[in-house]
Design a protein around this nucleic acid. Structure first.
Lengths: 233, 233
DNA sequence: TCAAAAGTGTTTGACTTACACCCATGA
DNA sequence: TCATGGGTGTAAGTCAAACACTTTTGA
């Protein structure tokens, strides 16, 4: 187990001779625009990759993931959830990757992020194995949770129309939904409030605007208690 | 744990001057016996704690968790799933804990594990904060998934009666279930096969024995593809 | 007046819940 | 014959899916 020569690709030794795994934190942040779902990629190092950082030994991993995203976007994410901790060998290095998924409201999407870009998931190319795995599973998780939680609301702006909400669902799920059933289902959640104003959007009837009321939201995201509580911004 | 005294609690530096977090792998393994749900605790170090190990830089974290459990029990687990990666400060050390939950069939429960013991979750005491968090969340996850997956089957022996299955559900959920509705629901899953034999158990009608057929199981555990595929034993 | 999206109800089948009695056995 | 757990059906209510037309607006 102990080797003293040059550093072995599979692991490294620290000063004490114990194995010191490379850990990194990665975030797959999605937004929906133009009927496409896009992921935030960092391009500071020339190549495009998921935003990442290394545990700093001070903040929790979850908190660091949040800050990582904020440093890219300049504002806090709408929804974030830890995904999975996977083991990959990338560039010859054995790594532990703690991955999270985040959702960004469409209000902020057009703003090009400081050190990255939004890339539609259909156009991804040349990513590392680990990044691909994270993105694929993140999408799976978001699609699954769209069915039994209210995460979909976090993809919109603060005020939105029911048609926008439905379009976001359809884009993420990749299939059409029935308008009447969709509206009934959303109304039944009891987390929608009408603002009273409308949005006129073309040569047709204007749409009513709604607002999401998180405090009424009883949907169970199945995340651990410590992930949703505390962790002050 | 090796510490040299002057090292900062929050983090350590390796030879390269980068932070090297302490990572460990912990498994909360549950079994059901005597109408109680018990967790496997390791007592090799005098104190009782969840079985744990440190990433070896060779196997995946998930595979290491499996092997960790096997080394305690002497046989493979029936079901295992990664839970969460949390950040804790224990004994003054900032740690990253990659936690998993496992279910053990009741056939093997009576066998006392080599270096540990089964302790009913109602009698836990003196565990570290991290272990408590892991166990609490693991129970939450198992209870939740009992509703929409078939994990419950992994708590039984290879052959079982429907009453045993129901008792396991009731023990985990902490409430009684209706016998007729329960049996209808289980039958509808299409993963039960009658063995033809029966078990006589007292002065009453003998019960039919069933077997779980995983290959018919279409329930979606929502785990990532790489966790269920490959990972050869 | 036309095009285009907003908005609205009903019916059907599937699933969930509540609920009570007879059956097979050993003592 | 009795005590014990094994085994079964039905009715009511709730939920999801399919399905089409009227409304309001700008051009």
């Amino acid at each position: 187990m102990d080797r003293t020569g040059e550093i072995e690709p599979a692991q490294r030794m620290n000063c004490l001779g114990t194995a010191t795994p490379e850990v990194d934190i990665r975030v797959a942040a999605f937004t929906v625009a133009n009927d496409q779902i896009s992921v935030l990629l960092d391009r500071t190092d020339g190549i495009q990759q998921l935003p990442r950082s290394v545990p700093n030994g001070v903040e929790s991993i979850d908190q660091q993931a949040r800050n990582l995203l904020r440093s890219h976007l300049g504002y806090p994410e709408r929804y974030m959830e830890q995904l999975y901790t996977l083991t990959v060998v990338e560039m010859g290095v054995w790594r532990i990757v703690v991955s999270s998924v985040a959702l960004i409201g469409s209000e902020d999407t057009p703003t090009p992020p400081a050190r990255g870009r939004w890339l539609p998931v259909s156009e991804l190319d040349g990513l590392s194995m680990g990044d691909e795995m994270v993105i694929e599973y993140a999408l799976f998780r978001v699609r699954s949770k769209l069915d039994y939680t209210t995460i979909g609301f976090h993809l919109l702006s603060e005020e939105f129309t029911l048609s926008e909400l439905q379009a976001a669902y359809e884009t993420v799920l990749g299939r059409k939904l029935d308008k009447r059933n969709f509206r009934r289902r959303m109304s039944a959640l009891g987390i929608l409030t009408v603002t009273g104003s409308t949005r006129r959007d073309g040569s047709h009837r204007p749409a009513r605007l709604y607002r999401y009321q998180p405090e009424q939201d009883s949907s169970d995201y199945l995340t651990p208690p410590w992930a949703t509580a505390q962790e002050g911004s």
